[in-house]
């Protein structure tokens, strides 16, 4: 299937709906993590943790903002890459909250490092997959832009 096929064009609306649903999930996650961090801080007797307070920035900067940009520009990313990216953001967010809990309690755990490693690997994999799909799409269609490359996954 070509990146410029009618099938791809037909799938645009569906993909946009999917992106909007993902945006909604990210907005909900941002609000949830923001409230969770604030409530946790409120009951932490003045012990401040940047991890806890700023954990909401991961779903915000890694989900809400990119999706808004993608929806505005009409660009798409492969579903598999989006999945990897989502998992990476979730991992970073969970790791940040975990580190916040440890910091407020005043303890450490070597397992916290796994979140940062796994999150980085997943995000990098998502970016690489997007780049690979884009390159493959461009090779097939001769397109110079990345628009429409998600059509690849619809075959």
């Amino acid at each position: 299937m070509s990146c410029m096929s009618n099938e791809w064009k037909n799938s645009t609306q569906r993909q946009e709906d999917t992106a909007r649903a993902a945006l909604g999930r990210y907005e909900a996650a941002t609000a949830f993590v923001l409230v969770l961090g604030a409530v946790y801080e409120y009951f932490s007797f003045g012990v401040w943790s940047g991890f806890m307070v700023y954990a909401f920035l991961f779903p915000l900067a890694g989900g809400v903002l990119p999706l808004r940009i993608l929806l505005r520009t009409g660009r798409r990313i492969p579903a598999a890459a989006a999945g990897l990216w989502n998992c990476g953001i979730a991992t970073f967010t969970a790791g940040c909250l975990f580190c916040g809990i440890l910091e407020i309690y005043g303890t450490t755990n070597r397992l916290s490092g796994i979140y940062w490693i796994a999150g980085t690997v997943l995000l990098a994999a998502g970016v690489l997959l997007t780049a690979a799909e884009k390159a493959a799409c461009e090779r097939r269609t001769g397109l110079q832009t990345g628009k429409g490359m998600t059509g690849i996954r619809q075959k």
Binding site: C87, Y105, T107, L111
Partner: peptide, 28 residues
């Protein structure tokens, strides 16, 4: 197909949850 595509994503989220619970148990 789309649902299948998301299964591994949900499985990973579940794994992440289980790991976090384990990490908390390991800590406390």
């Amino acid at each position: 197909q789309r649902k299948r595509g998301r299964i591994w994503e949900w499985l990973y989220m579940a794994l992440l949850g289980v790991f976090t619970v384990y990490a908390l148990l390991d800590t406390f």
